[in-house]
Amino acid sequence: MSKYVDEAQGVALLKRIAAKDRKAFEAFYYLYAEGFGRFLMKMLKHQEWVDEAVNDVMLTVWQSAGSYDPEKGRLSTWLFGIAHKKGLKLLERNGRYREESLEDYPEEADSDEDGAPELYNTDMSPNSQPERVVMGWELGDAMSWAFSKLSADHLAVIDLCFAEGYSYQEIADIVGCPINTVKTRLFHARKRLAELLARKGFSLPEQVKVTI
C-alpha cells in the first residue's frame, strides 16, 4: 500500500475525516482499504473475516482520525498497525490465533538483545540444489502451501518486510513489539518457511544474483 498511495493525499483526507466529512471518508476507503485489505486477506484467509476487519479498521479511522500524528510515522504504518490489531482480535475471537504458538519460539517473546545472530547458524536450505518440480509440485505451489501453514505472527512479519516493504522500525510499530523481536521473529518465520518447504522437498533457490 505504502508503495502505491500518495501519503499527503491520505493525510489531507484524514484531516477532513476528523471533521466528520463523509465524502473524504469514502475517498479514503477507496484509496487505502485495498492495501490493508490485501494484508488482512493473507492474515485471515477468509473473505467475510476480512470484510469485518476492514469495517473495524474504517470505524477506528472514523473515530480516531484526529489522533493521527504525522510526526510519529507514516499514515500507512498507522493504518497497518490498526489492521494488524483488528486482524489478531478476529483470529482470537475465532480461536485461530497462534495455532502455531510463539511459545514454540521463546526467543521471540521479548527480545531486547541486539539481534539474534546465533540463530543464523541454522541451515535453511535442506536442498542446496533444489529441483523446480518435486513430486508433481512446483515451487510456487509449495510456497503457497507453506505460507498457509505459517502462524499469523510469522506471516505478518514476512509479508510486511518482503511484500509491503516496511522498515524494521515500521514493522515494530505495526506489530507493537521491540525492533529486535521483529528481527528474531522474521528469522524464525523464514526458518519455519524453509522447514515447511523442505517437507515438500523444496528450498529457496540461492542462484539469484543480488546486486551488491
Partner: peptide
C-alpha cells in the same frame, strides 16, 4: 551474508500471489 541476501532475494521473487484477493 551473501547467502542470506540470496535467500531473501529469492523469497521476494517467489512470494506467492494470493489466490483470493480482497477489493473494496
Amino acid at each position: 551474508c551473501q547467502r542470506e541476501a540470496l535467500r531473501c532475494q529469492s523469497l521476494v521473487e517467489e512470494l506467492p500471489t494470493p489466490q483470493d484477493t480482497w477489493k473494496p
